[in-house]
Computed example of a mutant assay.
Amino acid sequence: MTRRMLVVLSEYGYWGEELVGPVEAFDAAGYRTTFLTPTGQRPHALPPSVDPDYIDPPLGRSVTTSDMARRVRELDESPRLDNPLSLADLLPERPYYSAINHLRDLEEYNRRNASAVADLVTSFDALVIVGGSGPIVDLANNERLHELVLGFVGVDKPILAECYGVAVLAFARDLETRQSIIAGRHVTGHPKEYDYKDGTGFFGVDFNMGPPPYPLEYILRDATGPGGRFHGNVGQETSVIVDYPFVTARSTPDSVPSGELLVQVLENGLRRHGW
């Protein structure tokens, strides 16, 4: 039976290699890949991620080879990304607590959400959240995506999150306990040393945020809490952590190995790697 992968992309730009790495691993394994965005708009690669001459400020070097830039352009311009699923169409929106008929609205929301999440989770073998600066805008605090993540965790199916996409895992919580699903877990993600001091931008928006609005490392350290740990692995060329059901990747060069490790999780039962 062919495995099916659900890949979530921001509508404000994804980092090219962070999509290409996993997708090429899935293609090589014979998996089917389906793409999903918050409202069904076609995703696009962030311009710096297709430019081999772009120098990443904190690393002081190019992070995109000419070959990878070519592969990113081929996928970004291909029809594969033309008609992504819409998360807003598939899952309901949680009502405000100030709604006039809140209790009935919440009961209806829970019924619809449980059914919709179950349908998606049943249809796919794993969830992938691609990184880049875009996820800061429309993925990190997306309640619909949080519910989808909780659904995959609830049935013990793996989730790969890359770079700023790992923030989704920190914020995905059962509202009864408010505890992050990565509490007590080992994860990696964008460390403080990799953060820009200026130039954080988003696809389709003429706006330079300056530095990122939050240091992801601090959020992940707090979310993992006692018993867990954030692994920055600063000074190491790659950083990918497997603490099942989570596979987390630090940044751009970790994209290819993270996809390959998720295949190992699915095919060989890998449950721990990198710590």
Rank of each mutant, 00 (worst) to 15 (best):
M1R: 15
V7A: 07
S10N: 03
Y12E: 03
E17W: 06
G21N: 08
G21L: 04
P22C: 08
V23Y: 06
A25H: 10
A25V: 01
A28Y: 04
A29Q: 08
A29M: 03
R32K: 12
T33I: 14
F35L: 00
L36V: 01
T39P: 10
G40Y: 08
P43K: 07
P43S: 09
P43G: 04
P43W: 01
P47E: 13
V50S: 11
D53I: 10
P57D: 03
G60F: 12
G60N: 11
R61V: 04
R61A: 14
T64K: 04
S66Q: 13
R73G: 02
R73F: 03
L75C: 04
L75V: 12
D76A: 08
E77P: 00
S78L: 13
P79D: 11
L81Y: 06
N83R: 15
D89Y: 08
L90Y: 12
P92C: 11
E93W: 05
R94K: 09
P95D: 03
S98H: 02
N101M: 08
H102A: 05
L103F: 04
R104S: 14
R104H: 13
D105A: 14
L106W: 09
E107C: 05
Y109W: 06
N110Q: 13
V117S: 09
D119F: 05
L120R: 09
T122V: 08
F124T: 03
A126T: 03
I129P: 00
G132A: 01
G134Y: 01
I136F: 02
A140V: 03
N142K: 00
R144A: 02
H146V: 05
E147I: 01
F152L: 04
V153F: 10
V155T: 15
D156Y: 12
D156S: 15
K157E: 13
I159T: 08
L169Q: 02
A170Q: 03
A170Y: 00
F171P: 05
A172K: 07
R173A: 07
D174P: 06
Q179F: 04
S180H: 05
S180I: 09
G184P: 06
V187L: 03
T188E: 07
H190E: 05
E193Q: 11
K197V: 15
K197A: 14
G199C: 12
F203G: 01
G204N: 08
F207W: 13
M209N: 11
M209P: 06
P211T: 10
E217N: 00
L220C: 00
R221P: 05
D222K: 14
T224F: 07
G225D: 10
R229E: 15
F230L: 07
G232N: 02
G232C: 07
V234W: 12
E237S: 10
E237Y: 12
T238D: 12
S239N: 10
I241G: 09
V242H: 02
V242Y: 10
Y244G: 06
Y244T: 05
F246G: 07
V247L: 07
V247C: 03
R250P: 02
R250H: 00
S251K: 01
P253R: 04
D254L: 07
S255A: 15
S258E: 01
V263I: 14
L266S: 09
N268Y: 13
N268E: 15
R272G: 09
H273Y: 15
W275E: 11
